[in-house]
Design a protein around this nucleic acid. Structure first.
Lengths: 309, 309
DNA sequence: ATGGCTCAATCGTGAAAAGCGATGATTTTC
DNA sequence: GAAAATCATCGCTTTTCACGATTGAGCCAT
């Protein structure tokens, strides 16, 4: 022990520091060993290894029943060692919490999902994992990107390295003022020249309007707004009709509004498809895995889109 | 990796965390291995061991030349891991500093030593170890105790579990007003009835006065004070003479004072012995070891007590 | 498509270390 | 002195560590 080399942290191991702390507290190698579940000789060797690593004795061993005592060097090592052990324990707890489903999850979403799917999803996730940190973002650039998101809801497929899961088909329905059309299904072809209020040309909207156009009709878009209630008010006011996905009108009290009628489109316009995306090839946190499960459950539990029978 | 046990901190080793950090920074097992001085396969196994310990993958390995990426679990582990590594490095530095002689040293002392030995000792110690923390205490209860002191100066031996080292013999000298005694040595026996000013009966003082008494003389103690300058002023004022150790009058300009004369005592009173004590059987810090060396050097370098030839 | 490239995982091997049990050496206590 | 308590040490087995060579999976350019 006379030759003191430079201390190297990689020679110090947490187990040695734990032994140091136990011996210092118990005042005895043997009692420390019992506490740690080792034999006395093992603890003796652990301390010896530690002393080799730090280049000096950490305990004075008086011999006999006298308790061992920290040397000045031992005090220095123990001081820092306790902090190391505390950090290590913090790490272990953090890992346990993570595996139990705590942590952060970042979800990208858009209007219809925000209204219909996310509330129950968030509620169930928070109920199951009270400590979790759920972050939502509704940024909707033209090209939605997963970026640093864990999950992304979008009504279509994302380009880029993403896996996807189709949550549900969301059929388009025609909402019109009462009497505008006879009750029952309406053919898209009949919409030629009909005044419509509609969403802006984002997300699935362009595809839907192209589908209408392919049926030969050219509706007249008289107003665009992203706000559903505004659109419905316009319909009520007789400004025009609206073609909206089922999910968007589900919450609003459209069905019970005497001034409005909901018509199936037949032949049906291909429905809007709601997808859940996540980055391909990346392991997910337990929280994300669970969120995907819950999202599928919530999606199927949403009253199934009305039959087109 | 499907079975996730509870994380145990003793399974996580610093070396694994270092590998984790290196791989995360390099984006590659191989480059991390080069940086750490291991082979690729070793790093691979270290990461595998870490993943076993935390119960899940910490990296996604996309395969091919794509860089590996941290999983959410890996981020959690790395976050805490970096702190652990920083603490470990702090420990290593603290140990190095300690071995280089930094740290704290607590020294107990008393008047003569404080004046004569400690100043050069402190100066040299601070010059050699600029970072050291020297604490002095001059508490002098009747029974000086080492307690938590690293070193204790005392003019006598300490009872208790202490090792000691005699620094020097400090002979007693008679300081008298000029003309009080004929020049040259004075016999203690001639002090019978002589008025003396003296130190309080602490430290070596009782033993010295008993030695005088054993020579048959009974001086008359007319004043006691622990302050040397006060005693010397009293001598100058003709109130009496003083028997003081050489160390106590070395600094004061007694020899050059026309009104004072210094007489050897012959036959000599046994000198006061200055000891340096430290707790027996306890490993000392390098700083303490060095302080002992310097103290002996300073003690011998002090102009040797005058010969009694 | 198809080799060539890059990379991590894996296997086998030898060396090192961890841990255990038993034995010694040393000190304190009765 | 004898006894008790305590840590160090030795021999031993099992596990781990690190290496080198190989394998296999995913890219990329041809």
């Amino acid at each position: 022990m006379l030759l003191a080399r430079l201390a190297d942290m990689t020679d110090v191991e947490l187990r040695h520091l734990a032994a140091l702390a136990a011996v210092a507290e118990e005042g005895s190698f043997g009692r420390a060993a019992t506490r740690l579940g080792y034999t006395q000789s093992t603890v003796s060797q652990q301390i010896a290894a530690l002393e080799r690593a730090v280049g000096g004795l950490v305990f004075d061993r008086p011999g006999g029943p006298k308790p061992v005592r920290l040397t000045p060097l031992g005090s220095v090592v123990l001081g820092h060692g306790r902090e190391l052990l505390a950090r290590a324990e913090a790490l272990a707890h953090a890992v346990d919490r993570f595996q139990a489903g705590e942590g952060r999850i970042e979800i990208g979403t858009f209007q219809s999902v925000s209204n219909a799917i996310l509330p129950p999803l968030v509620r169930r996730l928070r109920d199951e994992h009270p400590g979790c940190d759920i972050r939502l973002s509704e940024d909707e650039p033209d090209q939605p990107r997963i970026g640093d998101l864990d999950l992304l809801f979008y009504d279509g497929r994302i380009d880029g390295d993403a896996e996807h899961l189709k949550l549900l088909d969301d059929p388009y329905l025609l909402v019109a003022g009462v009497g505008t059309f006879p009750d029952g299904p309406v053919s898209p072809a009949r919409l030629d020249g009909v005044p419509l209020v509609a969403w802006p040309l984002t997300c699935d909207q362009p595809r839907m309007e192209q589908a209408i156009a392919r049926s030969g009709a050219r509706p007249q878009i008289v107003f665009r707004s992203a706000v559903n209630d505004t659109l419905l008010s316009m319909v009520r006011a007789g400004m025009g009709s609206a073609i909206l996905p089922w999910l968007a009108i589900r919450g609003a009290d459209v069905a019970s509004d005497d001034r409005l009628r909901i018509h199936e489109l037949r032949p049906a316009v291909p429905p809007r498809e709601i997808y859940l995306h996540w980055q391909a090839g990346r392991t997910q946190s337990p929280l994300t895995t669970r969120a995907i499960e819950i999202a599928t459950e919530v999606a199927t539990a949403l009253a199934p889109p009305p039959p087109t029978a």
